[in-house]
Amino acid sequence: MADPLEQTILDLLDQRAPGATICPSDAARAAAPDDWRPLMQPVRDAAARLATAGLVEVTQGGAVVDVATARGPVRIRRPE
Rank of each mutant, 00 (worst) to 15 (best):
L39Q: 03
P42Y: 13
Q15W: 05
V56S: 08
A68C: 04
D45Q: 11
G19R: 05
P24T: 00
Q41G: 10
E57H: 15
R37T: 00
T8Y: 06
P79N: 01
G62A: 11
L55E: 13
A53E: 12
D45N: 11
A68V: 01
I76F: 05
A17V: 12
P18N: 12
G61D: 15
A48L: 02
D45L: 04
P42V: 08
C23W: 15
M1K: 12
M1G: 14
W36M: 12
V58E: 05
C23K: 15
P38N: 02
L39P: 03
R49K: 10
L50F: 10
A28C: 10
A63R: 07
A17D: 14
S25P: 04
A46W: 06
T52V: 11
A20R: 11
A31G: 02
T8G: 13
V43W: 04
P79L: 09
D45T: 08
Q7L: 10
E57W: 14
L39K: 00
A68E: 15
R78K: 14
T21Y: 12
E6P: 08
P42G: 08
D11P: 01
P24G: 01
R71W: 04
S25G: 06
A48E: 11
L39D: 06
A48T: 01
D34V: 08
M40L: 15
A63C: 03
P79V: 01
R37S: 00
A30S: 12
A48C: 01
V43Y: 04
P38Q: 03
V67S: 11
V67E: 13
V56G: 03
R29A: 14
D3V: 03
R49M: 07
